[in-house]
Amino acid sequence: MTNWFKREKENIKTLTDQKRETPDGLWTKCPSCKKSLHIRQLQDNSYVCPFCDYHHNIGSEEYFQLLLDNNEFTEIAADLTAVDILKFVDTKPYSERITATQKKTNLKDAIRVASGRMNGLEIVIACMDFDFIGGSMGSVVGEKIARAVDYAIENYLALIIISKSGGARMMESAMSLMQMAKTSAKLAILAQHKLPYISLCTNPTTGGVTASFAMLGDINLAEPKALIGFAGPRVIEQTIGKPLPEGFQTAEFLLEHGFLDAIVHRKELKETLTKITRHLLPE
């Protein structure tokens, strides 16, 4: 009798990387309103859900396509890759993690830098990719931002950085931590040249990225409902031992508390960025 309750089959044994994705994503589900969406429908709507206005998480490829005229751009420092200088091993070696992530995402690291035109205006733009180890900042992210600043100074251009990151990359320990100082020092030099820096915080922007370049824009912008903060919500909840208020650490919360200049809908992003950049550049 009791055998009825015994599980005879083993648990699901398919490893995550062996799982088959749905055939080349023609359909997707909005994580917010759970409605089914055709990929094309989403693309045509700037990756914003046409039903609930949820801003889907996208990467550098999509942002460059949304912001740069005819999706034409030159990538800067595209060949930089991470080095496992600490020989860091957690559940797997960092070096293996890098190679596996590069293969999976077709990205070199968690940020890409490009120069191109936005409504005819030449700009340099850096955009983080959350798919690459949580958009974490290690030496490569720091160096690419440094190169973006150099490029902006050499060519007298405005700089835009789109942040999307869990923070500094643990596998590079203090080396990652120092990227906060590095990027901030670079932005201080950009400021001395009186060139504009616009920061766009997207979902999520947390940790060492928030505590460095993401909050240092001449203009700080964010996408609607993006999670933005220094400490992660779970850590705060654990520390204070009570649930967090509704809407805590959202873009709207930061705007209300004075840390953002504006929240910009993704469909208006290109126009707004262009307007602001034109205001900031000398006549």
Partner: peptide, 26 residues
């Protein structure tokens, strides 16, 4: 570590640290 609390986030813990890095470098 910097304090992870509600008020700390409301008053911009990230911005405060970032500002110091920026200002201290020059």
């Amino acid at each position: 570590g910097a304090y992870p609390g509600i008020e700390a986030e409301e008053r911009g813990q990230g911005e405060a640290i970032a500002r110091n890095l920026f200002e201290m470098s020059t």
